[in-house]
Simulated scan of single mutants.
Amino acid sequence: MPANHNASLTHRRLIEAASALFFRDGINATGIAAVAEFAGVSKMTLYAHFASKDELVVAYLDERNERWNAAVLQSLAAADSPAEKLLSLFDLHRQWLFEGGLRGCPYVNSAAEFPDRSHPVRQAVDRHKRGVKQHLLDLAQNAGLANPPTLVRRLFLLLEGAFLTGALENDDSVFLVAKDLAAELIDAAQPRAVV
């Protein structure tokens, strides 16, 4: 097996280990030694792939963001109308909250541990959140909905609020309420026929 293939597999294992531990235990509470041990490699091997813990955290968040964007595209492809596409994001958020054991949003969790907006981890969080807003904005604009920026702010707050409330109350059904409210907002923003 080529050395670069082995290196790629090791890199992947390290990100998976970091993902599991950072999400479960928190970033600051998880040491590099724990990640290396969980991945089945030495600390020296970990540092051969990531120059610092911050670099590993950013890689974990960026990799999760790539998986998220792929899931968004799949979700949107399964929906028919523009309104269904927007609402499908509520179903997708609910699914990810449930699959994450109702532990909350890893980006919000990371932001709480790294409040300095100039820190690379916080910048990775901000990239993800901007991406979520951009998906909403693109969909709202493509649907011809009224005042897309305002609608997006409202839908984003519903998504974030449902994610946080679902985690705090250990209840992913809050997304049903959020989705109903989102449907009302989307309906109110539909272009009306001129009579």
Rank of each mutant, 00 (worst) to 15 (best):
L97T: 11
A146V: 04
L92Y: 03
L137P: 00
L145T: 06
K133L: 12
V152C: 07
F98M: 09
P148C: 07
R130P: 07
S75N: 03
L97S: 03
D138C: 05
W96N: 11
H135T: 03
A124S: 11
P82L: 11
A77L: 14
D126W: 00
Q134Y: 07
K133S: 05
A140S: 09
V125I: 05
T150H: 08
R122M: 02
H135A: 09
R94N: 03
G131N: 13
D91T: 11
T150L: 04
A77G: 11
R94G: 14
H128Q: 06
P148E: 15
R130D: 14
D126Y: 02
L73W: 10
V72R: 02
A78E: 02
N147E: 13
Q95K: 14
L137R: 03
V72N: 09
A111T: 10
R117W: 07
V121P: 01
H119T: 00
N142P: 07
H119M: 02
G144H: 13
F90T: 09
V132K: 07
A111K: 15
V152F: 02
A79V: 12
D138M: 14
H119Y: 14
V152K: 14
P120M: 14
F114N: 00
H128C: 01
V72L: 07
G104P: 05
P120Q: 12
G131Q: 00
F156E: 15
T150E: 15
F98T: 15
R103T: 00
D138P: 01
Q123K: 14
A146T: 10
A83N: 15
N147L: 11
Y107S: 01
W96A: 11
L92E: 00
N147A: 15
E113V: 09
F156D: 10
Y107V: 04
C105M: 02
A111M: 10
Q74G: 09
L87N: 10
L73I: 02
L89P: 01
L139P: 05
L76Y: 13
R103N: 04
S118F: 09
F90D: 07
L76V: 08
V72W: 09
P82V: 07
E113P: 08
P82S: 07
K85Y: 00
A79W: 15
S81M: 14
H93S: 08
L102K: 06
R122K: 08
V132C: 13
Q95S: 06
A124H: 01
D116T: 05
A112H: 15
R153C: 02
L92P: 00
G100E: 05
L92S: 03
N109C: 04
A112N: 15
R117E: 05
Q141G: 07
L145H: 05
H119D: 12
R130F: 12
D80E: 10
S110T: 15
E84H: 05
L92W: 06
W96I: 09
A83C: 06
C105N: 03
R94W: 06
